[in-house]
Simulated scan of single mutants.
Amino acid sequence: MTAATPPTGPTGPTAPTGLCAGRVVAVTGAGRGLGRAHALAFAAEGARLVVNDLGVGLDGSAQPDGPADRVVEEIRAAGGEAVAHGGDITTAEGAASLVATALDAFGRLDTLVNNAGFLRDRMLVNLDEDDWDAVVRVHLKGHFLPLKHAAAHWRAEAKAGRTHAARVINTSSGAGLLGSVGQGNYSAAKAGILGLTLVAAAEMGRYGVQVNAIAPAARTRMTERTFAETMAAPADDGFDAMAPENVSPLVVWLGSAASDGVTGRVFETEAGRITVMEGWQPGPTADKGTRWTPAEAGEATRELLASARRPQPVYGVR
């Protein structure tokens, strides 16, 4: 199989190395933006792709076009192998059919990239229950169900003596790490994805499954307004710092067998930067050895806060 066209780097195309040769990768929400960039990058490294996209608008409404088919055509035109999947991965049937599509088309599944999502931004007092449910369903449930069905397949394979170097990459956000004004639904869902990642990594390691999460920043339909002020033209050296393709190399590596031993981790990634996030760690502690009075607890807490690191500001707070 000829690898798909390699992704473009700051100084031109990066040469593929065959890092994912023979692997089968399913990417959700892969019709546009980050998902499309991931799919093309995996294909460039020799993977066979299941390109999932429901083809909805930025707010989750139905759209007439079929972006998954277009990405499949791109991959095939470059000599790669790919099939489209238009199922709704927020339903048990759609998530199960994503795994089934990989098995039917290619006989295996090695990597799942959970990426699908959309926005319905409102300040909390204006946030309708439907907008809350829709965003949490697509981001959080849309991660859980594909993960559940892929994990069930890999567990069955392991019990049958066919352990895979299986990989899952979940997509969180800086909003999930820090919060974001006007995005209470999105922030809560993205924070939930982090908890899901840690649990899945702990539960599925025995079956050869590694689960990690990324918190990317890039120019997509979802972020074009949020990052409008920072999305300047590419630098003089041609490097477009906000291109979604900048995020994909880390995703491809995490989705390959080369990432052996890396699991239960969260990475921030944008432009040329990768950061290992260290999550909630114990800070200053006071232990009285018996029950506090409310006044004592308050005094001790203020002393602890005075010596604790200040939290990063929520996005949108000036």
Rank of each mutant, 00 (worst) to 15 (best):
A151D: 04
H153N: 12
H153R: 12
W154K: 06
W154S: 03
E157A: 15
E157Q: 13
K159D: 15
K159M: 15
A160Y: 09
G161F: 15
G161P: 11
R162A: 09
R162Y: 13
H164V: 15
H164C: 11
A165E: 08
A165D: 12
A165M: 03
A166T: 09
A166F: 07
A166E: 08
R167H: 02
R167F: 00
V168F: 01
V168E: 00
I169A: 01
N170H: 07
T171V: 12
T171W: 02
S172H: 00
S172W: 00
S172C: 04
S173G: 08
G174F: 01
G176S: 13
L178R: 14
S180G: 14
S180N: 12
Y186I: 07
S187A: 14
S187P: 04
A188W: 12
A188E: 10
A189K: 06
A191W: 08
I193N: 03
I193A: 01
L194R: 11
L194Y: 01
G195Y: 06
L196T: 11
L196Y: 07
T197Q: 09
T197H: 03
L198S: 12
V199K: 13
V199N: 03
A200N: 10
A201R: 07
A201K: 05
E203G: 07
E203W: 00
M204K: 11
Y207R: 03
Y207W: 07
Y207L: 10
G208I: 09
Q210W: 08
Q210S: 06
V211W: 03
N212A: 02
A213E: 10
A213P: 08
A213K: 05
A213S: 15
A215R: 06
A218N: 06
T220A: 10
R221W: 04
M222F: 02
E224A: 06
R225W: 11
R225P: 05
T226I: 15
F227D: 14
A228E: 15
A228G: 12
E229W: 13
E229S: 13
E229V: 11
M231C: 00
M231Y: 03
M231N: 01
M231G: 04
A232Q: 13
A233M: 03
A233K: 04
P234D: 04
P234A: 07
A235W: 10
A235T: 09
A235K: 02
D236P: 02
F239Y: 07
